[in-house]
């Protein structure tokens, strides 16, 4: 096992620092820093493919010993700009083959639905990215109901997220040793924060309240593109 000296977090949410992706990734990064890993973070931007290649992000991603991608589940997979960034990172593989050395990759997905397993395809895509880009796959973590965290930082004593913090603590300890995230961390992150049956009513009230706050509750079901 080789211990990573540096870690780079890629935040793949367009909501940037206010995203749940940033909350989860930021917490993991802090824990890694606490174990002596030099940690930094970057946000994935919406760039055309040529600009993505020239952007510093692919080179930075390849320079880190440990790359962490934290992103929201979008339409069952990665948000488009994350795919674009991953393609650029993988393309760099040929350029720096000579430098060698092991690079690790871990992925974190948070999704809106309660079932973390809805992110299973997205994590499988990440695993294939790791292989294509020459990274060692150290596993994937998926969290349901990411909206309940809503971009607030973890570690503030909110009991609802205690198991998420515990899972990330376990993951950070393993990653700092150059090991894959343990199964228990995967299970803790995937534990539903609210039972799905209760969530449906809760979630629906949330959207109605959001619309009411804008005075458009009776327009929520509009069909602007009706045939």
């Amino acid at each position: 096992m080789s211990r990573p000296r540096s870690a780079l977090l890629l935040v793949g949410s367009p909501r940037g620092a206010r995203s749940t992706s940033a909350s989860l990734g930021g917490y993991l990064l802090e824990r890694l820093a606490g174990q002596g890993v030099t940690a930094s973070a970057r946000f994935v931007e919406d760039l055309p493919s040529a600009a993505t290649q020239d952007h510093g992000l692919p080179a930075a991603a390849r320079a880190a010993d440990l790359l962490i991608a934290s992103f929201p589940l979008y339409v069952d997979a990665l948000p488009a700009p994350v795919t674009r960034a991953m393609e650029a990172i993988a393309a760099g593989r040929l350029q720096d083959r000579a430098t060698g050395g092991r690079r690790d990759f871990v992925a974190m997905v948070n999704c809106g639905f309660p079932e973390a397993q809805q992110a299973e395809v997205a994590l499988a895509i990440c695993r294939r990215f790791a292989a294509a880009a020459g990274f060692c796959w150290l596993g994937g973590l998926a969290m349901g109901l990411g909206g309940t965290l809503g971009g607030r930082p973890l570690g503030q004593g909110d009991g609802r997220f205690g198991h998420v913090e515990e899972g990330l603590d376990l993951a950070a300890a393993a990653l700092a040793r150059g090991e894959a995230v343990p199964e228990r961390a995967v299970r803790l992150l995937a534990r539903p924060i609210v039972p799905p049956a209760r969530f449906v009513a809760m979630g629906n009230r949330y959207w109605s309240a959001k619309a009411a706050a804008r005075g458009i509750q009776d327009r929520l079901r509009d069909r602007p593109y009706q045939r």
Partner: peptide
């Protein structure tokens, strides 16, 4: 990587207005 191109995915990501925000349960999933 087993998924869609970024261009194709972008169009899908931008189409979620075609469904409602409201949740339902279907075949054991939301």
């Amino acid at each position: 990587f087993g998924g869609y191109s970024a261009d194709f995915k972008k169009a899908l990501d931008r189409s979620i207005g075609n469904i409602l925000p409201f949740f339902i349960r279907q075949a054991g999933e939301v």
